[in-house]
Simulated scan of single mutants.
Amino acid sequence: MRASRKLTVALACPEDAWPHPDWPAPDDPYVECVTTLREPLGSGEAADVVILYREDPSAAVRQLPATDTPVIVISPCRDTEAIVEVFRAGAGYLVEGDYCTCMLSSAVVGATVGHTYLSPVACAALREGAGQLPTGGEAMERLRELLSPRERQIMELLSTGLSAPEMGLRLQLSEKTVRNNLSNIYAKLEVRGSTEAVLTWLGATSAVQA
């Protein structure tokens, strides 16, 4: 997926802690520049996406309500509970050392269209965390039965952190078809976007625990 214009990222990171001083590369097709974000976060920052680099992701979660800009949290923390907390707050999560700068650029683009991107370790932690919660038994099965076989297939891929273009490649479908399916899924599950859909699909919301 190519952005219609290059994006600006605001970075909130402790001094000298950012591990990608050469990102974005001059030929990065998605991200134009990275600016330093003033803290505490404000709503008037001129950026398309905010990246919070934090040792403690819980501190990042406490900052999220201060900005309406999409947020990606990067942290060395692999604690399941912390990752689930960040995802519930609507932010993407990349575990340090578990992604490349190409994935980081893709996460930035995805965030601008409502996709909550997770690195592979963060995906595994989310699924593990959801697996430790009550799944709702029959209520969960009824909810899943609302979806067609194709929609269930797409939800499985979405819950592993794949974006619409990546799902399209995996399923040999156009991106438009995938997005149409996602719109139908959101309507059937009565959710507002990918984050709520994944939490519902994994049985990690009250909607399936009644």
Rank of each mutant, 00 (worst) to 15 (best):
V113Y: 14
L182G: 00
W201T: 01
L157C: 14
P19F: 04
H20F: 14
R38Q: 12
A89I: 01
G114K: 04
A124C: 11
C102V: 12
C102P: 00
A66F: 03
E151M: 11
S43C: 02
A210R: 09
V95M: 02
E156D: 15
V95A: 14
Y99S: 00
S183Y: 08
T195R: 12
D48L: 08
L94G: 08
K176C: 08
P14I: 10
W23A: 02
V61Y: 02
A91N: 05
P24E: 03
E145C: 10
R62Q: 13
R152Q: 15
Y99G: 07
R152Y: 01
Y53N: 03
V191H: 05
A207I: 02
L169S: 14
G136P: 08
S174G: 15
G114P: 08
N180M: 14
C102S: 10
T112V: 06
L173F: 08
I83D: 02
K6I: 00
R38L: 07
T101L: 04
R170A: 14
L11D: 05
L199T: 07
L162C: 06
L147F: 11
G193H: 07
P149H: 11
L162F: 15
A47Q: 02
A91H: 03
N184S: 15
G168D: 08
S163N: 08
G136C: 08
V71T: 14
